[in-house]
């Protein structure tokens, strides 16, 4: 890889965020992190301005929304906001083990849905989404 693909992870669970960051960093990705929607969109827009846009965003669902309040589907709000102007793949990584929530996320345009604790396949999916062999 000449240029490291850039991934933004947005999650309010600090240890989980840091752990994912380390895993993806070791895999050779350039990783950005944010703890909620406000920080998330700031980081995303900043990267666009710096002409180093993120190639993929991984969002949690239940986290602080754009008003800073914890909300069950905050991640989907962030997904919608990003998708307004950018054609960037967004993967949802959530603790909700619920079929209807998974459907809702795919219908909203998520590239995939993973349940925390059962997301061993995510790395493979990231490669597929980013077109990395």
């Amino acid at each position: 890889m000449d240029i490291e693909p850039r991934i933004l992870i947005v999650d309010d669970e600090e240890n989980l965020l840091r752990s994912m960051e380390k895993t993806l960093f070791r895999q050779g990705f350039d990783v950005g992190t944010a703890g909620g929607n406000i920080e998330g969109i700031e980081a995303f827009d900043e990267a666009v301005e710096d002409e180093e846009p993120f190639d993929l965003v991984i969002v949690d669902l239940n986290m602080p929304d754009f008003d800073g309040n914890e909300q069950k589907y905050a991640g989907l709000d962030l997904l919608a906001k990003i998708k307004e102007d950018h054609d960037v793949p967004v993967i949802v990584n959530s603790a909700w083990d619920e079929v209807e929530i998974a459907k809702k996320c795919i219908d909203a345009g998520a590239s995939d849905y993973f349940v925390k604790g059962r997301n061993e396949e995510m790395l493979r999916k990231i490669h597929t989404v980013l077109g990395i062999e």
Binding site: E98, V99, A102, K103, I106, Y113, V115, R118
Partner: peptide, 18 residues
Amino acid sequence: NPRVERTKDRKLLGVFDL
């Protein structure tokens, strides 16, 4: 036996619904 993994895989494949 509706499960998250199977459901999202079908949806991603393009089926109308599961």
